Amino acid sequence: MPAIISHDTGTDAAESLVYTSQPPVYTYTTSLISYALPPSQFVTPETPQVAVGAFIFTPPGTSPPKVLLLRRAATDSYPNLWEVPGGGADPEDTTLLDAVAREALEESGLVAATIVEFLGTVEFGTSRGNWCIKYNFLVDVEEGEVTTNPAEHSDGRWFDLEEVRTLAVTTELMRESLVKAFERVEELRRSRGISDPVS
C-alpha cells in the first residue's frame, strides 16, 4: 500500500466514498457528494467554462507546510508564472471530482488518494476570451515523484506560505486562494494536534 500524504478532516471512514476511474482510484467524503456530478452540471450561461484546481500539501508533521506549485511553460499563456495543478474539466470526466484527480495526475504525476474538501471557487476571464469558474479542492496524494509535461509546465516545486506571498503566481486570485488554503490546512492540522504555524 503506497504511503498517503493525508489531511484527515476527522470524518468517519464509514462516511467516505470510493470512486474508481482509470486511473486513478480515490476516495472522497460525503460532504463532497454534490460535486460527484458531471462537469456539465456546473456550467451556467455566465460561466460556460468549468475548471478545477488541486491544492496538494506536504504531509502533516512537516514544518512548515508547503504546497505544490507548477511553473507554466515559457511558450504558454502566463509564461513562467506559478500555479496549482489544474485545468479545464473534460467532457470525458465522469464527475467534477474525477476531473480533479485527472488533472492532478496529468500535471504533477501524483495520484490522488483522497479529495478532502471543497475550498471554494474563483471566476475569471481566460486568455481565449471565455469566462470560467474554477472549483478548488484540497487533495491528498499517494507518495511519489513530481513530474511535469514540459509543453505545459517547466518545473514543479513545494513552497511555504511566506514564499507564496511574494512568488510570481499567475494571478492575485491564485495567491488569495493559496493563502486561504494554507489557513485551512493549519486548521485541519490543529484539530489533529499537529502544529504547523502559519505566519
Rank of each mutant, 00 (worst) to 15 (best):
V179A: 06
A89R: 01
G144W: 07
F137A: 01
S177L: 06
D155N: 12
E103L: 10
L161V: 14
L110R: 06
T75M: 08
G87I: 01
E92Q: 10
V179M: 12
T75S: 15
A112Y: 07
G129I: 03
Y78W: 13
W82M: 12
T170L: 14
L97P: 02
L81H: 09
D76W: 03
R165C: 07
G109Y: 03
D93N: 13
R71Y: 02
S77D: 15
W82P: 08
V116K: 12
E183K: 11
D140L: 01
A112G: 07
V179I: 15
L70V: 11
D90V: 02
A113R: 11
S127W: 14
K134R: 15
E143K: 15
C132P: 01
V84Q: 05
T170Y: 05
E162F: 09
R184M: 05
E176D: 15
L138W: 04
L161R: 13
R72S: 13
V141F: 03
W158A: 04
V146A: 02
E143F: 10
D93Q: 02
R157S: 11
M174T: 15
A151I: 06
A112K: 04
T171C: 04
P79H: 09
S108I: 03
S154F: 02
N149E: 10
R157Y: 05
S177H: 04
R157L: 13
D155A: 15
E103S: 06
L110F: 08
A73G: 12
M174R: 13
F124N: 10
V169M: 06
L69C: 11
A101N: 06
L138Q: 09
N130T: 13
C132G: 01
G144C: 05
G109Q: 06
E103T: 03
W82T: 09
N149W: 00
T148N: 09
E103M: 06
L173I: 11
L70C: 12
G156L: 08
F118Q: 07
I115K: 00
D90S: 12
G87E: 01
